[in-house]
Simulated scan of single mutants.
Amino acid sequence: MKPESSSALVPSDQRNPVYQISTLQALVMGNFYGCLEVQDLLTHGNTGLGTFDAVDGELVVIDGHCYRIVKGGKAIEARPHDTTPFASVAFLDEETNDSLRFDALTSIDALRHALDEYLENRGPNNMYVMRVDGYFHFVAARTELRQQEPFKPFAEVLQTDEDRFRFNSIHGTLVCFYFPKYLDGVNTPGWHFHFIDDARKVGGHVFDLHLVSGRAIINKTDRFVLDLPHNRAFQEAALDQASKDEIRQIEQGAGD
């Protein structure tokens, strides 16, 4: 039997990657030390998500600007020298990517189902970055409060310092990343959603939603760039011992 034919890869300098600083395992285990400045993160992408030094709020990158989500869901534009211990970004533009329209998706599971159907034709083993601009009946979200050393595991942070809130009847954008299952631990497998409103005043990590209508722009990428921290906490961590349950808890939160 003849081997399946394949075309040569496009040179890497012509393919926009997903860029990531650190790994989710490190964050799970309490490595909250900022190791990359926001101004440097933004050279790698105009769309993204993550957190800040000492997990001082959720991080949202949209249209080339970086925002910190603080208590109550308030969004504040980050300063250039603010740092992140963990974030993923990519370049996303309307001209070179797919677009989809959504109507009446009444839960985050319904959105995931619609996106999984999209993946059936496009391939689940690549990475995807997406934004969904639309009108939401509600968005249920969270952020975290700043931690003090010695840092405890992220799951314990969620038990004591997770701040949840809900936005009703709001126009805004979901920033979404998809990572395949084989990257479990490097990042969250499946779809991960952050939200920010059109006025860039509120946002957070999304648990649930009701999308009335929206339009998505999606970029499929076959290239992943991972930078590792140089701090001692990363070098000495037994990252293979990071709990998969705790990794899932970062996505689902303490209350789910």
Rank of each mutant, 00 (worst) to 15 (best):
V89N: 09
A104D: 14
R164A: 12
G190L: 08
L92S: 09
I108A: 14
T84N: 07
F195K: 07
R146V: 13
P124F: 04
G134S: 07
N126F: 15
M127P: 00
A87N: 06
E94I: 13
L92K: 06
V157I: 15
T83W: 00
R112N: 13
D109G: 02
F165L: 04
D116S: 09
I170F: 03
T188Y: 15
K181A: 11
V175R: 11
N121Q: 11
F151N: 03
N126K: 09
E144S: 15
S99D: 12
M127D: 00
A110V: 02
D133N: 15
D116G: 01
D133S: 15
Y182R: 10
L174F: 13
M130E: 10
S107I: 11
P180A: 12
N168E: 15
T143V: 08
F165A: 07
H194T: 13
T106V: 02
V129S: 12
G204Y: 08
A90K: 01
D163V: 02
L119R: 10
I170G: 01
S88H: 01
A114F: 00
C176T: 15
R146W: 00
R112I: 13
V175I: 15
F177S: 09
F91R: 08
P150C: 04
L174C: 07
P85K: 11
F151E: 05
D184K: 12
G190A: 09
F91A: 06
H137L: 11
F207L: 14
D208S: 10
I196G: 02
F177H: 14
Y135V: 07
L183W: 12
